[in-house]
Each structure stands twice: as structure tokens, then as C-alpha cells.
Simulated assay, not measured.
Amino acid sequence: MQTVLYARVSTADQTSAHQASQAESAGFDVDLVIADEGVSGVAVPFADRPQARRLFDILRPGDVLVVRWVDRLGRDYDDVTETIRAFMARGVVIKTIINNFTFDGATDDPVQKAVRDSLIAFMAATAQAQAEATKAAQRAGIAHARASSEAGRKYRGKKPSYSRETFEAVQGMLGQGGMTVSAIAREVGLSRQAVLRIREEPEAAEAALARWGV
């Protein structure tokens, strides 16, 4: 049996090494890292990602697939749930770094299956809702930055202390719930004030990234 980490990173600010480090810190002993670099999680279905497709050839019954969160397994609700069920049907156990959830298709107990399937549905819906919120903030930020430019305002303000990866990570953690602002700040290496700004003013936070071309 082997433990494989699947990482998806969409910008140059993100690295698969960072997600591998997170997995190690969470106690996972990873044998192999498979990563799709520069691939959007909200535009490209899981099965269309070059490295993601390799997982169906690599993983065997009893193997463990580790992902940072279920949003790495698809671009929307249907994609995420179908991907999880496809791997479970192959006997693959899926585990998340955040909150250490486990999805195992081996159980035959109807109550355990109901609880598992309900959790999969809830987490997939949460992942899609967060992706849609991120896209909305991106659109608002880009529009705001374009309007400012067209009005001739060249001042970009102070460069954000967060990268695109960090911004998306904070939004993801906020959307999942269960973590305090201070805990999120420690997790991503930002100040508490920066996390609060992203939570309270996501459009303005996104606009700051857009103004700096991040």
C-alpha cells in the first residue's frame, strides 16, 4: 500500500512543496507527490487535469490519496462527488489534510454509509460555494481595478501582505468554518488584521491583488 498526495496549484505564487509540507506537518507519511501546476481549480474538471488522470493508473485498492481539501478533487459539486466515489469504488481511501477527514468505500453498514455520503455531499457543496465566492471576489476586484485605472488613478496603494495562494487559502478556511481568525492567521503566516480584512472586505482584498497584478 502507498500514500499519494495530490496537489493542485494554479499560480506561480503557489507550490506543491508547500502542500507536501502541510501534509507532513499533519502526520502523513507521503510516498509520492502528484501535482498539477498552473491549473485552475474552478475551470478545469478533475479528469481533464494531466497529472490527476495519472492517479487512476497509479492508485490500487488499499492505497491512500491525500489532498489538502476536497476542492482539490474537482471544480464543482458534481465533479468533486463523482471523483470521490470513483476512487472509493476502486478501494482507495481518501484523506484530507484540513480536519483530517477520511472517506472509505469499504464499509457495508448502511448507517455509516449514510453518514459518509452526507458528509461528502456537504463538503462538496461547501467547496463549490467557496469557489463561486472566490470567482465573484475576483470579478469585483478586477472591475474595481479597471475602473480606477480608467479614471486615471495610478496609485496602487500598499502592496498586499498576502499572495494569491494565501488569499484563496484564507477564503477556503473561512468558508469551512471551525477555525478562528487567529488560528487561520497562524496557519497561513499572516497578521490577524490581514485575515480580518479578507473576511470582511473580500472584494477590496481581491482588488488590491488585481492592482498589483498578482
Rank of each mutant, 00 (worst) to 15 (best):
E168D: 15
K159T: 10
H144L: 10
I142G: 03
D108I: 13
A143Q: 10
A136N: 01
A106I: 02
K154G: 09
R164N: 05
D109M: 12
M179H: 14
I84Q: 01
R156V: 11
Q176F: 14
R146N: 13
S163N: 00
G152Y: 04
A169K: 02
A131T: 00
F87V: 05
F103Q: 05
S149R: 15
A143H: 06
A131N: 01
D117F: 06
T134E: 04
A136V: 11
H144Y: 14
A169F: 00
G177E: 14
G157C: 02
G91T: 05
Q138S: 11
M173I: 09
V93Y: 04
I98G: 01
G91F: 07
K135G: 03
A121Q: 05
T102F: 09
N99D: 14
N100V: 11
A114C: 00
R156G: 00
V92N: 09
V115R: 12
V92H: 04
K135M: 12
R85N: 07
I84H: 00
M179Q: 05
G177A: 14
A137R: 01
T180C: 07
Q130V: 15
N100R: 15
E168F: 02
G172V: 13
A114H: 08
T166N: 03
T83C: 00
E168H: 05
M123K: 14
Q112E: 09
T166D: 01
T180G: 13
A145M: 10
A121G: 14
A106K: 07
A131P: 02
A137E: 12
R153P: 00
T83Q: 00
A183K: 15
M88R: 14
G105I: 05
K95D: 05
Q128M: 06
I84W: 07
Y155C: 11
I142K: 06
G91V: 03
A86D: 06
A143P: 04
P110W: 01
M179N: 09
Q171W: 04
A140Q: 07
R146S: 13
I142H: 02
P110S: 04
K135H: 08
I120H: 12
I142A: 12
E168M: 01
T134F: 04
G141M: 10
G172F: 12
R146C: 01
A121L: 12
A147T: 14
I94H: 11
A127H: 03
Q112M: 09
D108N: 11
E132D: 12
F103D: 01
R156F: 05
A183L: 13
A129Y: 04
V92K: 08
D109N: 15
F103A: 01
V92D: 00
V111E: 14
F101A: 05
Q171H: 07
T96P: 08
A140F: 11
A121H: 13
G141R: 02
T166R: 08
Q176L: 12
R139L: 15
V181K: 05
V93M: 08
I120G: 03
T102H: 03
R139P: 03
A125W: 07
S163C: 03
A145P: 11
T126R: 11
L119F: 14
M179G: 03
A145E: 06
T107S: 13
S182C: 10
R139Y: 06
G172R: 09
K158F: 03
E132N: 08
T180M: 02
A124C: 09
K113V: 09
S118T: 00
L174V: 06
A169Y: 02
G152P: 02
I94A: 09
F122W: 07
